[in-house]
Nucleic acid binder design. Structure first.
Lengths: 222, 222
DNA sequence: CGGTGTTGTTAGTCGAGGCTAATATTCGCA
DNA sequence: TGCGAATATTAGCCTCGACTAACAACACCG
């Protein structure tokens, strides 16, 4: 089957859903893609006919090996482009995702390889997401969410979800980027903010923000 | 009307045809685009409905002011991308056109401006083609063809048509790029090759090649 | 003068990718 | 138990952008 831009988008979001353990259903896909449910039904039928997805045991869809390979190619182009735009073109952190979202469908193999070489074969994009290799295995495992870190622990940020430019701008403003360490403070009950210390300054982060942050506990507050 | 990738392609080639003084007719467009005549008829109808093109006096189509503005935006993105790919990414001369042909439809305004600034607001792309400004007038005038230069004259290459990668590779191989000077030698009759001296070496160029070269006579052979 | 291209259009079809409206199913809950 | 909300699919329609087949108009040429 022909991998048009639309097909690539569907495969990509199915890939994202399944690797996060969320069910890839008609409605979740429709919401994420801003498209009606019947449109998703129709496209899924085409994807099944093209042997790119299949119905999987419980409730959702799964990618076939061919579908996963195609999805990984798109994800690779996306993350390479984000890295390229940030490092070479100087596009700010919060804008690279949107630009890559469009360009990823127009990047040739040849140019992808040139960019990859120019960047020195990077393995992470600016948000800390791993860049799938052109061939060979890829590990998409998400680190633990910041919300899982106990009070008093020291936490290393590894990945910051790239979907919300405003949130990204705010996080960058307070110094929250992949690689930095934060001290996890008090957790306000009933969905209240989580207090974290970054660079010596305390910040209260609401759930929408902490949800974007993943990493690992690396000890306790010194 | 919505400027899809297809619409942009049509406007661009109509622009190229009219600026070269060739008639923009159904069949020339169809040939250049590798598409059937009825497809062109249908698209032209849409473009007319969208006030982007109109029937012009003799035989062909013309761009309206809106259509020309849109075409110039595409041409600008194309040539900026060619320049960017060549200078920043290191894509070889003969490949930049093909890559830009696809990327031009996916380049946002925002990114276009960043690239323009990064390159220092270039006015010519790697083939010597002028880059239309974002706003304001643009002069697309083609210099004289090399075939018009008299024997014994010295000729400065200004533009090299970018359509044929093989030809470009060959021309680059013998040092024929925009900016270089050549000495025009004997013209073999009956469509035979034209002898030119580049960098001290004589080359016989067939009509398909000389057709790609434009510039200006700058004196006589020293 | 009559064929033979070339050119352009109309008519009809197709696939991709979207939409709304209507129709099951199923699930949670009063 | 039964009602409403969420979920998925079907049916039917639309636009875009391509295609082939057929036809009209014209030009050139023997």
């Amino acid at each position: 089957m022909q991998a048009t831009g639309a097909v690539e988008d569907y495969l990509k979001i199915i890939y994202h859903l399944v690797t996060k353990g969320e069910p890839a259903t008609t409605s979740t896909i429709a919401r994420r893609l801003g498209v009606s449910s019947p449109s998703v039904s129709a496209m899924v039928k085409r994807l099944e006919a093209g042997a790119l997805v299949e119905r999987s045991g419980e409730g959702g869809l799964a990618l076939t090996s061919g579908g996963k390979a195609e999805a990984l190619r798109v994800v690779r182009r996306h993350r390479l482009l984000e890295t390229f735009l940030a490092e070479v073109v100087g596009v700010p952190w919060d804008e690279v995702h949107e630009e890559a979202e469009v360009l990823e469908h127009a990047l040739s193999d040849r140019l992808e390889q040139r960019i990859d070489a120019l960047l020195g074969h990077p393995v992470r994009d600016p948000h800390g997401d791993p860049i799938p290799p052109r061939t060979g295995p890829h590990d998409e495992r998400w680190a633990d969410p910041l919300t899982a870190a106990p009070t008093g622990s020291r936490f290393r940020i590894e990945r910051v979800s790239d979907r919300d430019p405003d949130a990204l701008r705010y996080l960058a403003g307070i110094g929250l980027r992949p690689g930095v360490h934060v001290d996890v403070g008090a957790r306000t009950p009933f969905g209240g903010p989580l207090w974290v210390t970054v660079d010596g300054t305390e910040h209260a982060l609401g759930l929408p923000l902490t949800d974007l942050l993943h990493g690992a506990v690396v000890g306790t507050r010194p």
